[in-house]
Simulated assay, not measured.
Amino acid sequence: MTAKLTALEFLQRQIDGTLPADASCDLKYPTAISQLLGFRIASIDKGYACLEMDADAAIHGNQQGTVHGGLLSELADAAIGTAHSTLVEEGESFTSIDLRINFFRPVWKSMLTATARAVRQGRTISHYQCEIVGDGAKLVALASGTIMPLRDSAAKGWGHSADLPPTIRTRP
């Protein structure tokens, strides 16, 4: 069996096609939401991620007939989360604590590229910026987000009722 890889090693090998079938890491890749929406990791490095997707208003549209801003927000959040996952140490996890996005132009059909970079990496809070460009390298949106690492019991999540505090486990 292959040794457990860091998220960075796992994603680098996934991109270059050298990921063994039995490889694993502490985080789940590809994520369910990325598979559902068709996000692809194009490049990865420490504190950096570039994701791509084919956006089409016929599939991802809003009432105006353009690609929904929520999809752009999810793409930015996924790029920021993927960039941060390259910095996660064994036994850690993380959560987004905010995401701000500015939209600059509508999208009807385009290959979108979201590039996220760490602006400041801290022990308790890290800040990221993400630029989303469309065909012709035109700026579509600019996002910033803040990530908080989760350690110890907070990193394990609350996936089972036994993990919940007694006040949440049962309802009156």
Rank of each mutant, 00 (worst) to 15 (best):
R13S: 04
S144V: 12
P166D: 14
I80K: 03
E92A: 12
T82W: 04
R123F: 05
G47Y: 03
A32C: 03
R123G: 11
A42F: 12
M53D: 01
R120P: 01
T95Q: 03
V107T: 11
N102E: 12
K4N: 06
G81R: 10
F94D: 07
G61V: 10
D45L: 07
F10L: 04
L142D: 03
K138S: 05
A116G: 00
K156V: 04
A49M: 01
L37I: 02
G38D: 09
P172R: 12
S73F: 13
L142Y: 10
S96R: 06
L19I: 00
T66V: 15
T124M: 08
C25R: 05
D45P: 01
H60F: 10
R105H: 11
L112T: 06
L71Q: 01
G69M: 09
G47A: 08
L27Y: 07
V119Y: 02
K156E: 11
K28W: 08
A78W: 03
A21Q: 09
P165E: 14
R171Q: 15
W158L: 15
S34D: 12
A118R: 00
G91N: 09
V67L: 02
P30N: 06
A155I: 07
A42G: 08
D45Q: 08
G69H: 09
S73L: 13
N62A: 09
A23Y: 01
L71A: 05
Q129W: 04
G159H: 09
R171L: 15
I59D: 00
S144Q: 14
G136T: 10
H160G: 05
L139C: 08
K138E: 07
Y48P: 00
M53Y: 02
D135S: 14
Q64M: 15
C25M: 07
I101L: 06
W108C: 05
A32L: 12
D135G: 13
C25F: 04
A79F: 04
D45M: 04
D152M: 04
K4S: 13
N102R: 15
D45R: 10
E52P: 04
A3I: 08
I41V: 15
D77K: 02
D22I: 07
L71D: 01
Q121W: 00
S153Q: 15
R40F: 11
G159W: 04
F104R: 09
W158R: 12
A143Y: 02
A79D: 07
S24L: 06
Q14L: 15
A7M: 02
T115S: 10
T95S: 14
T2F: 07
